[in-house]
Simulated assay, not measured.
Amino acid sequence: MYTIKTMNAISPVGLAKLPAGVFEIDNDAAAPQGILVRSADMHEAPLPESLLAIARAGAGTNNIPIDRCTEAGIVVFNTPGANANAVAELVIGALVAGSRNLPDAIQWAKGLKGSATLAKDVEKGKKQFVGPELRGKTLGVIGLGAIGSRVANAAVALGMEVLGYDPYISIDAAWSLSRSVQHCVTLSDMLPRCDYLTVHVPYMPSTKHTINAQTLAMCKDGVRVLNFARGELVDTAAILDGLSTGKVASYFCDFPAEELLGVHGVYCTPHLGASTPESETNCAVMAANELSDYLRNGNITHSVNLPDVQQPRLGGRRICMIHKNAPGVISAITGVLTAANLNIENMVNKSKKDVAYTMLDVTGNLEDTLAGQLAAIPDAIRVRIL
């Protein structure tokens, strides 16, 4: 029986993927084997020795202490692509709303309540909200993953010219991308041509302030910028300066910040990107399946700190070992198994930076002391025998 603790409300559809009899959902568990989390901050939370895996029902894992988890042999999962449609739809909505000045127009129309000359006021006032159509305009998409590719394809369907920049585009993303999307090798190739610019890359030190004073200087005057990925990807000071000079016409952002609120031309939404029932269900189902497969079978899919490793169960016992990515570890493992007179039926080993994962299916008389022998290997981090 595996105990799972949830640190946020998780969709019942997702929890149903953890059947009773194999899993117990206990939100107050002191020693869970797995944790399901959405946005709860875990940086100050204890990581009990029992904890084997954390599954984040969402893409970002900034709320999870990744380094501490890796050191403790705790696999951290996320759910890339599960909320992609929800975010992409919101971006397209913001693209239309920003181009046609809908937020300001709606707010202005509210002020007409009670006017004795309502019809005249509407006809006279609407001129100040005239905005361009999207058809024929150019959209630059930075990052062509699950979300960026959907945005790009939808913009193509709206009749836009779409430019894409992603030096790390995956094969799956490339296959899903419309052939009408033009690939740019550098940002300097793309930015001067864009009427609209949207960013869809993960946040990490290398992507911080992807949109900054230098990149904005390459853009057309009056560019409209959208950020529904992470607030830190855009330099707030640079955006505010661009708004004041006219370099930036508007900034749509899903991450409110004190400096942005109340500024003309800035439209903040309260982190609504994945806030749909469908997205929450998709994320919960994927997270629960990842957690279940790892706890029951040792398979790793969509981990942010361990390599992805999958191997079908063919009988016998399975040994799962997280260890440092160092010379001699594999020979040490096989040496222990040979001494124990165990036959290795299948074996897979993969690494991710300084950590590696080895999974072996063995047959033979497996003694209770084997896990301790494997754990005694100097570079071992965690050993499980299923």
Rank of each mutant, 00 (worst) to 15 (best):
residue 13 V to T: 13
residue 14 G to R: 00
residue 15 L to F: 07
residue 16 A to N: 09
residue 17 K to S: 02
residue 19 P to F: 10
residue 20 A to C: 06
residue 22 V to A: 12
residue 23 F to R: 01
residue 30 A to G: 14
residue 33 Q to S: 12
residue 34 G to Y: 07
residue 35 I to K: 06
residue 36 L to F: 11
residue 38 R to N: 12
residue 38 R to C: 09
residue 39 S to M: 12
residue 40 A to Q: 15
residue 41 D to I: 07
residue 42 M to T: 08
residue 43 H to Y: 12
residue 44 E to M: 10
residue 44 E to V: 08
residue 48 P to M: 09
residue 48 P to L: 09
residue 50 S to L: 07
residue 50 S to P: 09
residue 54 I to W: 00
residue 55 A to I: 04
residue 56 R to F: 02
residue 59 A to D: 08
residue 59 A to T: 14
residue 62 N to E: 13
residue 64 I to N: 00
residue 65 P to T: 08
residue 66 I to N: 00
residue 71 E to F: 05
residue 72 A to G: 02
residue 75 V to C: 05
residue 80 P to K: 04
residue 80 P to F: 03
residue 81 G to S: 05
residue 81 G to K: 03
residue 82 A to C: 09
residue 82 A to M: 03
residue 82 A to T: 05
residue 83 N to E: 02
residue 83 N to H: 05
residue 84 A to W: 01
residue 85 N to W: 10
residue 85 N to C: 07
residue 86 A to T: 06
residue 87 V to A: 06
residue 88 A to H: 06
residue 89 E to Q: 14
residue 91 V to F: 11
residue 92 I to C: 07
residue 94 A to K: 10
residue 97 A to G: 08
residue 100 R to F: 05
residue 102 L to V: 15
residue 103 P to Y: 11
residue 105 A to S: 14
residue 105 A to H: 13
residue 105 A to T: 12
residue 106 I to C: 08
residue 106 I to M: 12
residue 107 Q to M: 09
